Every structure is written in structure tokens, then in C-alpha cells.
Amino acid sequence: MKLQPIEKREGLTSEEFRDEYLLPRKPVIFKDLIKDWPATDKWTFDWFRKNYGHLEVPLFGNDFHDAGKHYMASKRKMKFGDYLSLIENEPTELRMFLYNIFDHAPELVNDFSMPDIISGWNKRYYYMFFGGQGSSVNLHYDIDCSHVFLSQFQTKKKVYLFAPNQGELLYHQPFTVKSQMDVNNPDYEKYPALKYVEGLTGTLEHGETLFMPSQYWHHMEYVEGGFGLALRAYTDWTMLAGAAKNLATHFVIDKGLNKIMGERWSHWKKEKARENAQHAMQKMELA
């Protein structure tokens, strides 16, 4: 596996961003895209705890993708204030996502705005993500196929990115948007195709924004307990078509067969991913 650093830029114009990153579908970290947002200074652990600590939120663990009746289900619920204190002060695998805090605190939208660096923003679906030190997001690409602008607050997050054409080499499990690979500890004997994978890595710090092009594979690690905000944009109809296809296969086929077959379905996906990776690796060796 070969990794190169993600570029960090500041002062990019919309034209420069379009030509250098958007059109070639190349990730970049903006150092100053959200410098004028009230949220950049306002959103702290103490501020969220004081104003929204009473909310009860679902939390997810490392077993989120484990086969069976709890597949993609929350691990527990907790008062938001207690959870913030937990991730601020100690490591934990528990993460908060798939919960739209803006549905419960709509006034938060006044603390940020859609940057004019791009058009086509989805002004309904934006999400915050929270996690404790040491927690991570399993390697996957976003099911809605949007371009994602992920801004980090207060603390640091480690990012690994892989282009869409690396999917088979990453042992993409069919009918899902995920891979079972551990990017920090690649097992080249068990998963030999990983030797051919090329990707990017970088550390996202407070006030910085990652541009992640549509269908980019990503693995995120919380270097410290913290939180971020993801804004989404669509620049052509094919992205929406991809999202519709993914949603159908995921919620109808994958979740349905997981419910019926459990571990047998999980085993079939892993074996099919291995078969596809083997074919992709053979093509690379013959090229």
C-alpha cells in the first residue's frame, strides 16, 4: 500500500478549486474555507454540553457492521452532555452518527453557511459526527455518492483516502459500500491485492475542511475526541443515479439477505470480495 500526503491549500478561488480539484476529482484540505463561520470559534465541548446536553443520542461501536440482528444498529443511548464529557476526557470506541442533531436543534444552521467555492449544495442533509480518541470509521465510501466537505472542530482527525478505482483492490464487499480492510495494519499475506493499492493520507485539524470527491473510499481516525460537520454537494445527475442504486441494493438486498442469512451472507460477501480482488490483482500483474 502506497500513501501520499493530501495537499493543504489556502486562498483557493472557486475557479482554481474547479480546475485543480473538482474536475479531476482530487482531494484537498482547505485551511481557511470556514474561517468566517461563527461555528469555528463558538462550537466547543462546553458550549454544546451547556446548550444541548439534555438530548438523548444513539451511539455506535466497532460492531456496527457485524452480521446478525444488530447489523448497523446502535450500541446504546446516552445523554449528549455525558457523551461529550466521555469523549473529551478518555478514549472510547463509541461514535455518534446517523443522528441529525439539526432536527433537534435547528438554530445550529445559523452558525455556518454553504461556501461559494462550489454550487449544488444539498441544503437539507448535513450531519455532525462525534467520536472518542481511538475510535475510527471503517473503510467505506458514502452511499449517497455526493462530494463531501468535512470540517473539523477543536481537535485532530487522521484521514485515509482511496480513489473509486481502488475498490476491488480494497476488497470491496458486493451490495455494500464497505471494505473489511484495516488500513493501519494491512495483512498482505491474507489480502495480497493491498500491495497494489495507492492512496492519500493527512491530518485534519481545527478549522480545516477536507474536500472528498464522490465515491472516494475513506477511513477516519479520531486522534483526539472531537467532532466535525459534513456538507454535501452534487454537480451532475450521475451522482444522484449512483445514490439511488446504492440505496436500493443496500436497504433491499444487503439488509434483507443479512436478516435472512446472517453469517452466511457475510461470508459470501467476503469471499466474493476476495475473488474480485484476485482478478484485479492479476490484471495489474499482466499490465
Score class of each variant (00 low, 15 high):
2 K>R: 10
3 L>G: 12
5 P>H: 05
7 E>W: 01
14 S>N: 08
19 D>S: 05
19 D>N: 06
25 R>I: 00
26 K>E: 08
30 F>Q: 07
30 F>K: 07
31 K>H: 07
32 D>A: 03
36 D>K: 14
38 P>F: 02
38 P>K: 06
40 T>H: 09
42 K>Y: 08
42 K>R: 13
44 T>W: 02
45 F>V: 12
49 R>D: 15
50 K>Y: 03
51 N>M: 01
57 V>S: 00
58 P>C: 03
61 G>R: 00
62 N>A: 10
64 F>I: 00
66 D>L: 02
68 G>N: 06
68 G>W: 00
69 K>G: 01
69 K>D: 10
70 H>V: 03
71 Y>F: 12
72 M>Q: 12
72 M>S: 07
72 M>L: 11
73 A>C: 09
77 K>H: 11
79 K>I: 01
83 Y>T: 00
84 L>C: 05
84 L>D: 01
86 L>E: 09
87 I>S: 05
87 I>W: 02
88 E>D: 10
89 N>T: 11
89 N>V: 00
91 P>S: 12
97 F>I: 03
104 H>M: 01
105 A>R: 03
105 A>H: 05
108 L>G: 12
109 V>E: 14
109 V>Q: 15
110 N>C: 03
114 M>A: 04
117 I>P: 15
118 I>A: 12
120 G>A: 10
121 W>Q: 11
124 R>P: 01
124 R>N: 12
126 Y>I: 01
126 Y>L: 09
127 Y>K: 06
128 M>A: 12
133 Q>I: 02
138 N>P: 01
138 N>C: 03
141 Y>W: 06
143 I>R: 14
144 D>Q: 06
145 C>Q: 13
145 C>T: 07
148 V>P: 07
150 L>V: 04
155 T>N: 11
156 K>Y: 03
156 K>C: 03
157 K>I: 00
159 V>I: 14
159 V>D: 09
163 A>Q: 13
163 A>N: 14
165 N>F: 13
166 Q>N: 10
167 G>D: 06
170 L>G: 09
177 V>P: 06
179 S>H: 13
181 M>E: 13
183 V>T: 15
185 N>M: 09
187 D>A: 11
191 Y>A: 10
193 A>F: 03
196 Y>H: 15
201 T>P: 01
201 T>N: 12
202 G>F: 08
204 L>S: 09
207 G>Y: 11
209 T>R: 06
210 L>V: 11
211 F>S: 10
212 M>P: 09
212 M>Q: 15
215 Q>R: 09
216 Y>K: 03
217 W>L: 02
220 M>F: 07
222 Y>H: 13
223 V>S: 08
224 E>A: 03
230 A>P: 04
233 A>W: 06
240 L>G: 08
240 L>Y: 13
244 A>K: 13
245 K>I: 08
246 N>R: 11
246 N>H: 14
249 T>I: 11
249 T>C: 13
250 H>K: 01
253 I>W: 12
256 G>H: 14
256 G>I: 09
257 L>V: 07
259 K>N: 09
261 M>T: 09
262 G>Q: 13
264 R>F: 05
269 K>H: 09
270 K>N: 15
281 M>D: 15
283 K>D: 06
285 E>K: 15
